[in-house]
Design a binder for these strands. Structure first.
Lengths: 139, 139
DNA sequence: ATACCTGCAAAGGTTTTGCACATAC
DNA sequence: GTATGTGCAAAACCTTTGCAGGTAT
């Protein structure tokens, strides 16, 4: 939350209730929600906020580096309030997306250098499988 | 090409000129084209083929495992005729997508097991950076 | 006071769908 | 001959945009 205030002040962006709400929601959630999901979740508390505003707030937050955009290949984007570089895993059965903690792939950028003539800057690693619940249901 | 014939026969799918053209194009290309790109590329030789048919052909090819779908986070899908599990890299400047060869991440599924309660099945690894051409242009 | 942001509605881009006709088997 | 696939147009999604009015600084 302090990050938000500082960075917005520094970049001369306005700290509106809508932007705060979106950021707060992302910081408190581990669900990697889509814009639509965020919009619906904030609806009760911010009934007048529009979906377009959610999209605009997300774009701004991504631009200033407070939030990261994920694309697990569903045809839409998801957002993550945790900006440190960590892999994600999606359940092929129920679609939920979880963080994988304790494993950092930043060093991969270095290991991959010898296999490409690109200047490697970042990476995204996605795993796919079956979550605990869906595994149990199958039994 | 033999794969295509065999698998389609086995799954009782029809081997139409359109499906063959899409598959052949993907096998011959290293560009990881989108549906639109494939459609335009095949236009001269198949002027009556519709974009919807390209989409349907791609869906079928992905379903039977002859082609893989990529999502580098552009808001659309790209397709790859090379189905073995390899990482991709996209240029943040010009948007091109290249294969990274000589590096296989299948063993990552095993190494990641201790960090998640999912049953890990597959993964997708994307790198982002600057390609040779764009690096040189900047100088 | 004013530059920036919101909310609405409309537009833009990608992918899917329904249906009549065509074609691979 | 029949089930499946194609081509067209329309629809369904997700995301962006333009603009008038509102608000944080």
């Amino acid at each position: 939350m302090n990050n938000l205030t500082e960075i917005f002040k520094e970049k001369k962006l306005k700290l509106t209730p809508q932007r705060i709400a979106v950021y707060k929601y992302l910081k408190s959630s581990k669900e990697h929600p889509s814009a639509e999901t965020i919009y619906k979740a904030l609806q009760p508390e911010y009934p007048t906020m529009s979906l377009a505003t959610v999209y605009k707030a997300l774009k701004t937050l991504v631009e200033v580096g407070l939030v990261q955009e994920l694309n697990v290949g569903e045809g839409n984007f998801r957002y993550d309030g945790n900006i440190c570089n960590h892999p994600h895993i999606q359940c092929l059965s129920c679609g939920r997306v979880d963080d994988i903690e304790g494993f950092c792939f930043t060093d991969l950028n270095t290991s991959i250098k010898q296999y490409t003539d690109y200047e490697v800057l970042t990476n995204q690693v996605y795993f796919y499988g079956l979550c605990k619940d869906c595994k149990n249901k199958k039994k």
